[in-house]
Design a protein around this nucleic acid. Sequence first.
DNA 1: AGGATAATCTCAATATAAGAGATTTTGCAT
DNA 2: ATGCAAAATCTCTTATATTGAGATTATCCT
Lengths: 256, 256
Amino acid sequence: MKPTNSLERVLAVLEVFSEERLEWMPEELMQELGYSRPTLYRYLKTLKDAGFLMSTRNSGVTLGPKIVEMDYLARRSDVLVLHGLPYLKELTGAYSCTAMLLRWYGNKILCVASESSTKNPVSSYPRGRPMPLGRGAIARSIMAFLPRPRLLPLIERNLDDLRSVGLGDSTQDVLKSLKKVRKAGFSVAYGEVTPGAVGIAAPILDDRRYPIASICVTIAGNLVTGAEIDEISARVGRVALQIAAEQTSTRRNIGE
Amino acid sequence: MKPTNSLERVLAVLEVFSEERLEWMPEELMQELGYSRPTLYRYLKTLKDAGFLMSTRNSGVTLGPKIVEMDYLARRSDVLVLHGLPYLKELTGAYSCTAMLLRWYGNKILCVASESSTKNPVSSYPRGRPMPLGRGAIARSIMAFLPRPRLLPLIERNLDDLRSVGLGDSTQDVLKSLKKVRKAGFSVAYGEVTPGAVGIAAPILDDRRYPIASICVTIAGNLVTGAEIDEISARVGRVALQIAAEQTSTRRNIGE
DNA sequence: AGGATAATCTCAATATAAGAGATTTTGCAT
DNA sequence: ATGCAAAATCTCTTATATTGAGATTATCCT
């Protein structure tokens, strides 16, 4: 995805920030993005004036306060979060666990809401943190419902991980495993992302049965029996359906 | 600030989202921003592809998942948050209260971190929520340290609010009240923002004594005596100085 | 299936981004 | 304070990308 117009080139500046690289110097950005000095500084000025970036002491730049403000608004406008939160609370009320809501966007799985009822959660992905694609119940719950052409390249790219968690050796085997998940409607993983943690996830599908998100309960493995996992799985699956139902019914009356 | 180039015009699309208006229809955006149909749709496509916006099922747009992801990164790169959080925990550990860290940017006071040690906090501004400028200990703690030319228009614009909380009837009176705050180094407010809540705030100044942020403790009024408020005030003031000392960062002010 | 609404495309006119290099401003040490 | 080096901005021309009216296609909803 190389930028083709100036709009995308400005936005590309924001794309370079990552967990590994939270601060950039102008020189580095020129290098990384291939922009000339005046151009880069023009972009930076625009982004800083809008609050998307701010300068640091050592003349570097980091993400700015406008982002913070917009995330607050995003929390309030995301129907998935709004509808889902009560269910997360319900689940954390029922079990000593962490319950999360994760969106499937681009090629990422992104946590958008997270609730915990345990002091030291075995695994707590906070809002905004992307999840790995190749391992864990969440990834599988989503992949299982992706259309083949979308799915295949993902499997190829993550085959090593998928193999290591026992999904199968070949693409075909993985597809077979995913078919089972599809049939069950949920997915369970034992310590794939965090050692000792059991993850139970169910996809949230839109009216075309395309996965838009996943709901997941993470619980310490030594706290639950197999029967309990079955019980929780069924419950998570039910909740996923309920959230999905509420999503598709969000219609608006025309004519305001 | 009317957009002068295409970069600012794209970003202006993101500016229209507010707590009152979380979702926009393309038609409305054309109207509001004055862009032609193809242009608006081009912008929307760019912003959606980058994840800054997403479409809703009624063909409207809302803020998208990229925002969520970037806020996660922003939390990890903001030295104010990183240095400040332990102090917030210290304060919520010592008192049954809410402790917050708020940035001064543009003409806004924006909460960037918030911790509570009480079940039902009397007032809990979450991260990302802007604070009113005319009332409350926080606003005053910052205004007291603004240079005159920057301060005067702010006072004029919020004179009604400032008057109603007893800061003075004229601009001159308000200036006098703020001078006292400046001398004390902190500010206390009784139920100005939330009825029954006492707010105690101290500014975080950069090396030029320009306010970049404020730290605030909010506590239920019926929980504290006057003496305790004095104690907390001194403590909040000390913490503000400590955080300021640790700031190796933001020297420049953003969004002038 | 059909009508209405939403989104995209075409293409000419024109405004406007980009960059090399000079210049100014700022940061920092003495 | 003073001066030096690094950082940021400016100038100005060229060429290119952006724009919008209107037509066209895709999508939604009954």
